[in-house]
């Protein structure tokens, strides 16, 4: 892939989107039989699946916390998920992503309800297309609800990039690779509103003012995604009800 000359032409991005538009999203809940909760998400060309196991007994014993549940998060990319085959196994990037994602969920899961046990969140990126970590958090959030894990609220994640000096929502591959800045967010949404930030990273170069604009853009995108998450979850129940209506 080579660096495009321009990222924004006549106000539109390379894939035809406006700066504040999300890529198409598809969400399916309860896709895995063995997991306690699961979710499949497509965001742009990202295809990720999240599974939640737990709360379950924590093994080995020494990882147990006598006062609360231990949360584990594993972000993993399948070897075939990217253009150049990726060697299986965690690399440094995956480890960092797993860490900050885990911490985002630790901030909202009601840990004291399940001492001495563990909640495992596994997310596999089957196809990666910029923003896979945000797609994974969105899938994991739904999978946790599907597993019945008590939480303060739901997490919704989206990233903002800067290209040609313009802030764009939910960056695509070229914007992510060649842009001037990349900023992934995850928000806690409660009472139908964005309440606080559970995940925040940035690399690139942005002024203070630009960060503020990026934050507002991200909040707008996150609310749209949140509504899709809700819809997907509710869909399971409405269908069953309709069969017997």
């Amino acid at each position: 892939m080579s660096r495009p000359d321009k990222f924004i032409i006549n106000g539109k991005r390379l894939d035809g989107r406006l700066p504040d538009q999300l890529r198409p999203i598809k969400i399916e809940v309860g896709v895995l039989r063995r997991a306690d909760g699961s979710c499949y998400i497509e965001m742009g060309k990202n295809k990720v699946v999240a599974a939640v196991y737990g709360p379950r007994e924590a093994f080995p014993r020494h990882i147990q916390d006598p006062s609360k549940v231990v949360v584990r998060y594993r972000y993993n990319m399948a070897p075939f998920s990217v253009e150049e085959r990726k060697r299986p196994g965690p690399d440094r990037r995956s480890i960092e992503i797993s860490k900050v994602s885990k911490e985002a969920f630790e901030a909202i899961i009601m840990k004291e309800l399940f001492p001495r046990s563990v909640v495992d969140i596994f997310v596999e990126v089957l196809q990666a297309d910029a923003g896979s970590r945000t797609a994974c958090i969105n899938a994991a959030s739904v999978a946790l609800v599907d597993a019945g894990i008590p939480m303060k609220g739901m997490l919704t994640s989206v990233a903002v990039a800067k290209v040609d000096g313009v802030l764009v929502l939910d960056p695509m591959k070229e914007e992510d690779n060649f842009g001037e800045a990349d900023m992934p967010f995850a928000f806690l949404i409660r009472g139908g509103k964005i309440e606080s930030i559970a995940l925040l990273q940035m690399d690139g170069r942005m002024t203070r003012a630009e960060i503020k604009v990026a934050l507002n853009l991200a909040k707008k995108g996150a609310m749209e995604i949140y509504n899709l998450q809700r819809e997907a979850i509710m869909k399971q129940f409405v269908e069953e009800g309709e069969e017997n209506a």
Binding site: D36, G148, P150, M151
Partner: peptide
Amino acid sequence: VYSRIIGLFEQTDNSIRVIPLKGKYN
């Protein structure tokens, strides 16, 4: 007062509760 799980909302005169639709046995 917020819900902490996915469930059915039930309101009576003196309590609000959410009947779980999912979750492990506690």
